[in-house]
Design a protein around this nucleic acid. Sequence first.
DNA 1: CTGTTAGCGCCTTCAG
DNA 2: CTGAAGGCGCTAACAG
Lengths: 345, 345
Amino acid sequence: MTSSPTIRDVSKLANVSVSTVSAVINNKGIVHPETVARINAAIEKLNYTPRRSARGLASGRSGNIGFILSEQFFSRTEPFYTKVFLGAEFEARKHDLYVLLTSVDKQYSGPRDMPRFLHERNVDGLIIAGKVPAASLMELKKFNIPVVLVDYGDPEFYGTRVLMDNIRGTSLAVRHLVALGHRDIGYLGGESDHPSAKERIRGYREEMNRQGIAVQEKWMDISEQMMSLEAGEHSFARLLDKGDLPTALVCSNDAMAIGVLKNAERHGISVPDDLSVVGFDDVTEGCMITPPLTTVRVAKEDLGSMAIQALVDMLRNGRSRSSEIRVGVELIARSSTAVPRSNGR
Amino acid sequence: MTSSPTIRDVSKLANVSVSTVSAVINNKGIVHPETVARINAAIEKLNYTPRRSARGLASGRSGNIGFILSEQFFSRTEPFYTKVFLGAEFEARKHDLYVLLTSVDKQYSGPRDMPRFLHERNVDGLIIAGKVPAASLMELKKFNIPVVLVDYGDPEFYGTRVLMDNIRGTSLAVRHLVALGHRDIGYLGGESDHPSAKERIRGYREEMNRQGIAVQEKWMDISEQMMSLEAGEHSFARLLDKGDLPTALVCSNDAMAIGVLKNAERHGISVPDDLSVVGFDDVTEGCMITPPLTTVRVAKEDLGSMAIQALVDMLRNGRSRSSEIRVGVELIARSSTAVPRSNGR
DNA sequence: CTGTTAGCGCCTTCAG
DNA sequence: CTGAAGGCGCTAACAG
């Protein structure tokens, strides 16, 4: 085996011209079934696969999708975006696309800072996961390429957004707690300028109203910090300082919830006996912590696969048929929530 | 902006031939400094970047590196390989390479199951992270492509291996425990056929000998199971059944160590007061668990960047100068280890 | 040192 | 429905 077979070898073996072979490979035009069979046999026999760069050069399409992750998320504990990527890569295979993963600084520092694949025109479409600086987003427009935003719904942005159903998520959390008998339900959140964070708060408020329970501002703590374990600890500390605790807390994400658990333990507050806690995201640490965390699960892989589907749609039709896609959520009840003590147990 | 500039546009603007521009871009041959300056100015002005697929077609090199991960690791809790990938991607940028990440089933099921990028000749080299079926490894040879194995040192394999210093790692763990005053040190391991797992056991044994402590087989439990949290729980349960516990345990990885912590808590065994536990890998969960886990840290990013370096070396020189590279480890002392109770405290 | 000239392997009109 | 021919943008020998 000196060098791999080319489309010409196939055409010779099948006694047709290269263009016919090409048509078969790309499902273009209508080719006589018998000819198709002959060509496929030849392809099979030679174990032929078209070469990527040749196709790319001739067609003007690279066959690659860029996947941009903000650096901060990449190094983050949770394999959240890893799962999203996995879903994207898996879906991409179906469409014969490759996914090029890269990260960008949280600081935008000029056009030359954009991923190489954009400059080299090495991607046909782009997935951006998580929050990316607005300036970078603006810069993107110049490349005139289809873009899908995952888990960051900047409504100012032109691309399609793939989001999770945040409102429904916290709504489910509240409903779960109410079903257990809770009425004193607080909320701990962060990144108050993040659209998703806002939605989660909204879901909480709306469901509280729906349940006919007045939201107590003293039991809420919304900061601007990143929603980390430490933020959860601090947030809970502030609540403690006020002297009065609710019987249950909804947190903006699992990291914060875990922070609450840690801090509660330190203060001799027993979860779930004294306090029920619900997280959001369903990260793996949630199962390892004691007690295992009740949380809202997101189909992370679906975020990725839906993003690819939206891109393929845009690539094919020249426009996106949907501007926003919501991926479903479900409540996973584990052991950090229980009937409130006051209700007996 | 209709279509991006080509090398021809640059050559015209700089009043030179395309081949000279090409030479400058690729640092080939020797070009007059003044000409270089003129060409670079033109490149700058036109904001020119060579097109990936065109280079690929002409040079026969795709400029891509494939990164294969066994499916099981991909879905795994720990972002271990995510970090490895990050290190690889970062290093790849320096060499103007892209990294294509994909996963393979743990079951090898025929040649057609190999990643697409191999068939399409879309990668110039390959990184394989973690354990991959031997049959898949064999299949790889056919593609006649440089391969680097990361974190899986199959000595039968032809490619370069990038490994961590497992022996040193468990050796450090034992030394740390001995320094605290422990002499009754057990070992819990899994995947007994995995080269790295074997090395970790060896490091433990050797250091015990060096310290003049006889290894007690009753305090050892080596299974064939994957080294998971559950495996750690089971392993520890078996130890308990034997009735007699050491004062310290070295575990083959953090997941198992965390399993031990969980199970110990359930049995009212206090860590580190009754039992010291050391893990290996330094996964992030280690910090979140109570008590924070003492462990052996591996520079995960370095595993990835060294792999790329080795690959670049092979690509340039046609052969690899090193057949094995070891990345260093260090002991991270946290709170799961302490002076043994018998020594007073 | 620099320019000329072939392709690399495939897709894509356009005739037949 | 199929074949022939041109060209995508770049690299890689060669000549000069």
